[in-house]
């Protein structure tokens, strides 16, 4: 046992990497873990996506540090650049501002998940600690002719079948995505004239719908307009946002603002003094 430990410590010494890499690992590694945790625990999916993108870039750096130059670049270009952008597109489609509730609905699910995660992580670490990883050759030899050339040699010789099959898989995936998302129109889209005529025939809302609120300090389309009594009218927000529940109710704020405005304008016009006098 002691002999093993001794051997282990010597191997540690032999396989150590540079101090610079160690520093980089500990700093970036911490950031990567925080990014991963944020991915899981951020309420808004768009934030999650950004955190994940950050983690992936750090992983790209680690790839480079590990001598996988090609993969490091691909990680940035394909993963962070393409795949995460695809995620962001879908997040936009689903609703960028929609925040998830993090309260758990399945009884015991959260605790079970955390317990399993903890146990799994500990066991995994124990497994790595147990494994006899006393081999550390470095990639100096393998990368001698260039990392990309080395990979290409392997891909087009040893792994050529797997490579071809992944090509087929990608084609299939592309077709599958189209099949899943494509909706065939069974009827011609209505022209504007037809829609207008239909509205007249129905005689429900003849004039155009009221415009949304006009407090144009930010995206104003999701703010309902106020009725004369100050209550917001959901009718003024477009249907898509209404369906998503992404209506920002600012009526209280607006009424408060209105009141303040009135007061200020009153003061300026001297109405307030007159009013005070009248009170006296």
């Amino acid at each position: 046992m002691t002999a093993q430990l001794a051997a282990h410590s010597t191997s540690l010494a032999a396989y150590s990497t540079s101090t610079g890499e160690a520093f980089q690992f500990w700093v970036l590694g911490t950031v990567a873990v925080i990014g991963a945790l944020c991915t899981v625990f951020m309420k808004k999916s768009v934030h999650s996506a950004l955190c994940l993108a950050g983690t992936m870039i750090i992983l790209a750096v680690f790839y480079l540090a590990n001598g996988a130059y090609f993969l490091g670049i691909v990680q940035v270009v394909v993963y962070t650049g393409a795949i995460m952008m695809l995620f962001l597109f879908v997040v936009m489609l689903v609703g960028v501002t929609a925040a998830d509730s993090l309260t758990e609905t399945i009884k015991g699910q959260r605790w079970l998940a955390l317990l399993c995660g903890l146990g799994f992580g500990i066991l995994l670490c124990a497994g790595i600690g147990n494994a006899s990883l006393n081999e550390f050759n470095g990639l100096a030899q393998a990368n001698a002719g260039g990392n990309v050339e080395g990979l290409a040699t392997l891909i087009f010789t040893k792994y050529v079948f797997a490579f071809e099959i992944t090509g087929a898989l990608l084609i299939t995936a592309a077709v599958g995505a189209m099949v899943l998302t494509h909706r065939e129109r069974t009827e011609r889209a209505k022209t504007q004239r037809e829609m207008a005529e239909e509205r007249v025939r129905k005689n429900v809302q003849l004039p155009p719908l009221p415009a949304p609120g006009v407090y144009a300090r930010h995206n104003a389309v999701d703010i309902p307009g106020l009725l004369p009594d100050g209550t917001p009218s959901e009718l003024t927000v477009i249907k898509t946002l209404r369906d998503r529940g992404q209506i920002r109710d600012v009526s209280d704020e607006a009424l408060k603002d209105l009141k303040a405005l009135e007061q200020r304008s009153g003061e300026r016009l001297g109405r307030g003094d007159r009013a005070e006098e009248a009170a006296k």
Partner: peptide, 16 residues
């Protein structure tokens, strides 16, 4: 998700 927990627990047990 519930099923996934079982799978995950099972994987943990396999590792153990």
């Amino acid at each position: 998700r519930s099923y996934a927990v079982s799978m995950f627990g099972g994987a943990a047990i396999l590792i153990a």
